[in-house]
């Protein structure tokens, strides 16, 4: 793959020995090294991500399930030998059937899940970013106990997601949860959080916001610290108010970081499996499912339906790809090279 730039002419000299290697030779060495350095990752990704992807795309056009995956049905005869014959219900190519069944709502609730996913993603990312930005702005000032605040505020990041899910499920427990106790304390009737679609979704969103703010905060705080302080000093001398400084120095300075973390945050939240799966469990009656959890349940509860899960996978990936392309184009239009 790198031989295109290889120079066949020079005699093989021990690397690093020749006093001044030619440009071609140096670039060949560079490419060789670069490829060697990325190769393990490329191989693992190719085997474990891209092979499954292409296989998934193919499977989404078949009707493969756990039940019809074997090509031959073998029965053991009395003599100990095995008699095999073709499985009459063997899986086969079915064209766009899976997509039609999913998109028309024959299986699962694609459109409802998509709607919930969009709400979920938008609310979570907006809150992550807003709260993260607010906290980072506060933490970026010199003050007492700043280091302590920072450690405490980043702490939720260190908690494994399933523990956070459990902690919040515990808090939103209908009978002995902290949330209902707090509500009763101020004279509001206890809420059965998981009995209604919106309160159920609310608990998951709260959990996810709690979980996701630290990452945004840390990334934005890092971004703020790369903004030269001379800019702020100059603005203060010019009499700019705190709000003006924030709007005209901090926000533009954070643009590159913000664009990256918003894109990553959107992708991560869109595919955030454990929170919905463990906190709401889709209650009530699957109404709080997002696409990934809904697809998981539709495809894997009962007989595992591999082709259906592949279909959902392709649809989810397509949505995210379309989103990223538009996002990138929007950035390009504003002159951002990304």
């Amino acid at each position: 793959m790198t031989t295109v730039t290889a120079d066949p002419a020079p005699a093989p000299a021990p690397p690093g020995r020749s006093a001044r290697p030619s440009w071609l030779r140096r670039s060949w060495e560079k490419h060789w090294y670069a490829w060697a350095m990325v190769l393990p990752v490329v191989i693992v990704l190719a085997v474990l991500i891209f092979y499954p992807l292409f296989r998934g795309i193919w499977l989404s056009f078949t009707n493969l399930t756990e039940a019809n995956q074997v090509a031959e049905i073998c029965t053991r005869s009395i003599t100990g030998g095995e008699v095999c014959k073709d499985n009459p219900n063997k899986w086969e190519f079915v064209g766009l059937d899976n997509y039609l069944r999913v998109l028309t709502g024959e299986v699962g609730e694609f459109w409802q899940w998509t709607g919930t996913t969009l709400i979920w993603t938008f609310v979570c990312v907006a809150c992550h970013f807003g709260l993260g930005l607010g906290l980072a702005t506060m933490l970026n000032r010199p003050m007492r106990a700043r280091g302590l605040y920072r450690v405490l505020l980043v702490l939720p990041w260190a908690v494994p997601a399933f523990v956070s899910a459990f902690a919040w499920k515990f808090i939103f427990n209908e009978r002995f949860g902290l949330a209902n106790a707090a509500l009763s304390a101020v004279g509001i009737d206890p809420v059965s959080w998981f009995a209604d679609r919106w309160t159920s979704l609310f608990t998951a969103i709260v959990t996810n916001i709690w979980l996701g703010v630290p990452f945004m905060m840390v990334a934005l705080l890092g971004g703020m610290q790369t903004i030269p302080s001379e800019l702020y000093e100059a603005a203060e001398i010019d009499g700019a108010s705190a709000w003006q400084r924030f709007r005209s120095i901090t926000l533009p300075g954070l643009r590159p970081v913000s664009m990256t973390v918003i894109l990553l945050g959107t992708i991560w939240t869109f595919n955030m499996f454990p929170i919905i799966f463990l906190v709401t469990e889709g209650q009530p009656a699957g109404q709080s499912e997002i696409l990934v959890t809904g697809a998981y349940r539709a495809a894997f509860e009962g007989i595992r339906n591999y082709s259906l899960s592949a279909t959902y996978g392709v649809l989810i990936l397509s949505i995210l790809l379309v989103f990223s392309v538009f996002y990138r184009q929007a950035l390009r239009k504003q002159g951002e090279v990304w």
Binding site: K30, A34, G56, L264, N271, F273, L291, T293, I316, L321
Partner: peptide, 30 residues
Amino acid sequence: AVSRFNFPGRRPLMMVFLVTQMFPVAILIV
């Protein structure tokens, strides 16, 4: 490698890293 060397396939690799983030784990499991 991606930071220092301008090797063929560098930009696609960066894109691939982003795209891998889009794959729902639940679907890749099988």
